[in-house]
């Protein structure tokens, strides 16, 4: 976060050391969350606005819980109940939210780049909470924290870890952010998808040699430490990206027989919400090494870290 103000728009906005520091901060906030009164009075009278132009439950709630645990005032804007439905432009909406006294805007929009555009219009910091198919940096950071915590990694060093990311890479903002973040910390990432679900491989902005591509999940499954399943985003997907959900499930879905060939220590992650029976079979959705619940819990801590860092510019309490 080297810009004039502390925006968090892309994973590339923050350095490897900043990722590590945010993970340490998140880990502290996880302790806070376990206290009888899971709240710290560090952001009293600061106003955090969640501006969600696209429907979302978990990300918006996660940011709001995080802000409340930091004692900030939380103002919620959702497009479906606002003047957007009366034709107000994104720019006018953003200016209005700033005038209402926002200290921080947390923005989600169905179009890539809107948080960047808003950051150019307003004077307060902006956090990207997911923009179209572009980036979802807070998700990638909470996933880094979850992996680091689960494997008790020293200094968040991912070297030696093999992470398989499976599914709709083309339409996934989570994949774009995660691939960047995981490889930045040293992991080897294998992307598993059909060519119709991939942007041209050479165009993914990652260090050379740190990412490989395959269509064969079964071939890579036994080596993986982390199996990261993406949601099949039928709402964003081009027609004929794959023939049927059934065929997708057979090629890329996790079921009991696939779970059985994975390493004992391996874990399964998913950004949610899951489509049971599509990318994951119901019986394995509750498999003990599933970290979906951890991801949600850690999401609050990481978002506390992000909000705290941006509004105080401090890595330590």
């Amino acid at each position: 976060m080297t810009k004039g103000k502390n925006n968090l728009l892309d994973i590339s906005d923050i350095s490897k050391d900043e990722i590590k520091n945010l993970i340490k901060l998140a880990s502290f906030f996880s302790e806070v969350s376990k206290r009888p009164v899971p709240k710290v009075p560090v952001l009293q009278a600061r106003q955090v606005v969640t501006a969600f132009f696209e429907p979302s439950t978990r990300t918006r709630l996660s940011f709001e819980v995080a802000a409340k645990r930091l004692s900030a005032d939380v103002v919620t804007f959702t497009a479906s109940t606002s003047s957007i439905t009366k034709g107000e432009s994104v720019k006018d909406t953003a200016m209005t939210l700033q005038s209402l006294g926002a200290d921080l805007l947390i923005v989600r929009h169905a179009s890539a780049g809107v948080p960047h555009q808003i950051a150019g219009w307003v004077d307060v910091p902006v956090v990207n909470a997911g923009d179209g198919r572009h980036q979802h940096p807070s998700q990638a950071l909470l996933d880094c924290y979850t992996i680091s915590d689960t494997f008790s990694l020293i200094d968040c060093n991912f070297t030696g870890l093999e992470i398989g990311i499976v599914g709709d890479i083309l339409n996934s903002r989570v994949a774009r952010s995660c691939i960047e973040a995981f490889t930045a910390l040293g992991a080897k990432v294998t992307v598993v998808a059909t060519p119709t679900l991939l942007p041209s491989a050479k165009f993914l902005s990652v260090a050379e040699g740190s990412v490989s591509f395959t269509e064969n999940l079964d071939e890579v499954l036994p080596q993986l430490d982390v199996l990261y399943l993406l949601r099949v985003q039928l709402e964003r997907m081009e027609k004929n990206a794959f023939p049927t959900v059934r065929e997708y499930n057979r090629r890329f879905g996790l079921d009991a027989s696939r779970a059985a060939v994975m390493k004992k220590s391996a874990v399964v992650m998913h950004p949610g919400p899951i489509n049971r029976g599509v990318e994951i079979a119901s019986d394995v959705a509750d498999y003990p090494n599933m970290l979906i619940g951890e991801q949600v819990k850690n999401g609050i801590s990481m978002r506390m870290a992000i909000i705290y860092y941006i509004l105080t510019s401090k890595y330590e309490l």
Binding site: A112, Q135, N171, R176, P199, S200, F203, L204, S205
Partner: peptide, 10 residues
């Protein structure tokens, strides 16, 4: 369609 669209998710 290419590097920019892939990176920006546009």
């Amino acid at each position: 369609e290419g590097e920019v669209s892939a990176t920006l998710g546009l």
